[in-house]
Amino acid sequence: MEAQFTSPLLNNGQTCFLGTRILAPKSRYEEVVDAFTAFAGSLQVGVTSSPDTQIGPMATARQRERVESYISQGKNAGARITVGGNRPHDLDAGFFVEPTVFADVDNRAAIAQEEIFGPVLSVISYQDDEHAIQLANDSEFGLGGTVWTSDPERGAALARRVHTGTIGINRYIPDPAAPFGGVKNSGLGSELGPEGLASYQETQTIYL
């Protein structure tokens, strides 16, 4: 269960393949929101030299300002902050942003559609599997994703319908032996695996 919470916040949200757009079934929506809210609120924000730190700073002051601008956009779009949304009051030095969870997010809002690269999560409600697939594919990006389920076979069937270059079932751990790359506006080509070597190869055709 811990992986389900940590996969959206690796490297303080500054990782390309994170699942920061969380789709939750309408029947359990508040339960999911409460779980992520409690988790984000429990994280220790601090300097990276401390072994107790779980969320470190943004890479630059400019990046923190960018993340904060998205938080403002989310609020202005009508989404509800359940935890975070500010700079930590006890950290004067460093580019810190509190882990932030948004509920009641419209899938077309900027915080759901654009890459924030910060500790900001958007929880979006879906009606059924078809609606979830529609929402998942309604994005300009397609690098990675995850499906969380107690039925791995059903999860794999859903994963095949999500338009991403990579996707995990109940986890997301890139495999060096498999190609890693995205679709749509998420990068060009692939790396890793035998497919990732193709762009470095020079082929010759011999006709006899």
Rank of each mutant, 00 (worst) to 15 (best):
F39W: 14
K184A: 05
A93Q: 15
S27R: 13
L9E: 03
G85T: 07
I81Q: 04
S139H: 08
L135H: 14
L135D: 13
A178K: 10
E140T: 11
F180G: 03
A93L: 14
N137P: 03
T20W: 14
V33Y: 04
P152R: 08
Q113P: 00
I206H: 13
Q44F: 15
E2K: 06
P194L: 12
V162W: 13
F39C: 03
M58G: 06
L91M: 03
Q127P: 03
Q63R: 02
A38C: 10
R160D: 15
N86E: 15
N137T: 07
V123S: 09
T164D: 03
A136N: 08
T166K: 01
N170P: 02
V120P: 01
L143V: 05
M58F: 11
S7C: 06
S199G: 12
A35G: 11
N76V: 12
G182R: 10
G196I: 10
V147T: 07
E140M: 04
V101C: 05
G78I: 09
G196N: 08
Q204D: 09
L188S: 14
V83P: 00
P194Q: 07
A156G: 10
G94E: 09
G46S: 01
S190T: 15
R80L: 13
H163C: 02
N170H: 08
A159L: 05
R21T: 02
E30F: 11
A35D: 12
R64H: 04
V83T: 14
V32P: 01
V83D: 04
A40P: 08
L197T: 15
A109S: 15
E202W: 11
V45P: 01
L91A: 08
N107G: 10
S125T: 15
S150E: 12
P179M: 11
S125D: 15
P176T: 06
T205W: 15
D34P: 01
K26P: 00
L197I: 15
A109K: 12
G85M: 08
T6D: 09
D138M: 03
S49Q: 11
I133Y: 13
D138G: 02
S122V: 05
K75V: 13
H89W: 14
A177H: 10
H131T: 00
F5K: 00
N185S: 10
G145M: 05
V183M: 09
F36R: 04
